[in-house]
């Protein structure tokens, strides 16, 4: 029983954190909101350069042969930076699912996906695939996993409250992959949980910083107990959501028999944590947090979106009930 991450995992996390601190400041996220694709100029390429984009692919196709326990900290970083790039769809879901399926679709796409030359999208079959128009191949996950090449697919676009998330209904001829749809879904839900935890952590830190320097009645507002206790409650939710998210990643990596139940535990806790963090952050900022100019909304909206994506808290709580036989 050892929850600690290895030196390599921590080094990779630190490298990604440093990259995102430099290359993914709020201005870049805002620019992505305004861009055609919802994505940034060059960040995906930089992550590909580091090996992150293809890290979950087998080394035989040029990946790093890493698993969910290697990826989970990076997903948290993506959340902390509100990174508008498809780390969840491509790296956490697309590549491992193609690798599991094998066959002609994998032969055609996996190597290019590992190199970052082709981008994989993913979405629930009855929902939206984020950023599909800028992808090359989209996996639709329902009773089975279908692969739809974007070239030739019909795409119906909807706007998301998070301007970097372009939502697409994807139609077209799907090739059914020989991959477990429940596993593919769990990969996505667990990755979303890790991102939620990262978004929540940023919201908390940004609000602590703000509350310490905003003065009212001659004192920092962060010295008032009502504000402190709001923030302590948000911190509590995050403190207990993160280990569950790490555990969920491990369950996927090793094929644990309680995987689906414990992925649901992680996603429900993380959704609840980010929901509370967003509410708390806004309340403790006051009106400045309610503006479009202030950066807070970039994370709040990402939090709202991720909290609901791949099963919201209520959905996952129902799935836990089913797993408990009640």
């Amino acid at each position: 029983m050892d929850f600690s991450f290895g030196d390599d995992q921590v080094m990779l996390r630190n490298a990604v954190r440093a990259l995102l601190a430099h290359e993914c400041p709020p201005e870049v996220v805002r620019a992505a909101w305004e861009s055609d694709t919802g994505r940034t100029d060059g960040l995906w390429a930089a992550l590909a350069e580091m090996g992150v984009v293809g890290m979950t692919a087998p080394t035989s196709v040029g990946g790093l042969g890493m698993d969910e326990t290697d990826l989970v900290l990076l997903l948290e970083e993506a959340g902390r930076a509100a990174l508008p790039e498809p780390l969840l769809e491509h790296t956490a879901v697309g590549i491992p699912t193609l690798a599991e399926a094998g066959g002609p679709v994998a032969d055609a796409w996996l190597e290019r996906a590992a190199a970052g030359e082709a981008t994989l999208g993913a979405g629930p079959a009855d929902g939206y695939a984020v950023g599909a128009a800028a992808c090359d191949l989209v996996l639709l996950i329902g009773d089975q996993v279908g692969a739809v090449p974007v070239d030739g697919a019909t795409l119906v676009e909807h706007r998301s409250i998070d301007g970097s998330r372009r939502l697409f209904e994807v139609g077209g001829d799907a090739v059914v992959l020989d991959a477990d749809p429940a596993l593919a879904f769990d990969r996505a839900a667990a990755a979303a949980a890790a991102q939620c935890a990262g978004v929540a952590q940023h919201l908390l830190e940004a609000t602590v910083e703000y509350a310490a320097q905003r003065f009212q009645f001659g004192k920092p507002v962060g010295s008032y107990q009502a504000v402190k206790h709001h923030l302590a409650d948000a911190a509590l939710k995050i403190e207990f959501a993160r280990p569950a998210a790490h555990h969920a990643a491990w369950c996927i990596a090793v094929g644990d028999s309680d995987r689906s139940r414990d992925v649901s535990l992680a996603k429900a806790l993380a959704s609840e944590a980010v929901d509370l963090a967003a509410r708390t952050a806004l309340q403790c900022h006051g009106a400045i947090g309610y503006t479009y100019e202030h950066d807070l909304h970039l994370w709040m909206k990402r939090g709202w979106a991720l909290s609901a994506a791949w099963g919201d808290a209520a959905w996952h709580r129902n799935r836990i009930a089913a797993a408990l036989g009640i």
Binding site: F3, E239, R317, I320
Partner: peptide, 23 residues
């Protein structure tokens, strides 16, 4: 039933957080 699930989740969350703290 959802309240029961909430209690179960709380206990599991504490369990994993404690093992993480132990590490």
């Amino acid at each position: 039933r959802d309240q029961v699930v909430g209690a179960w989740m709380g206990a599991q969350a504490y369990r994993w957080q404690t093992y993480a703290t132990e590490s």
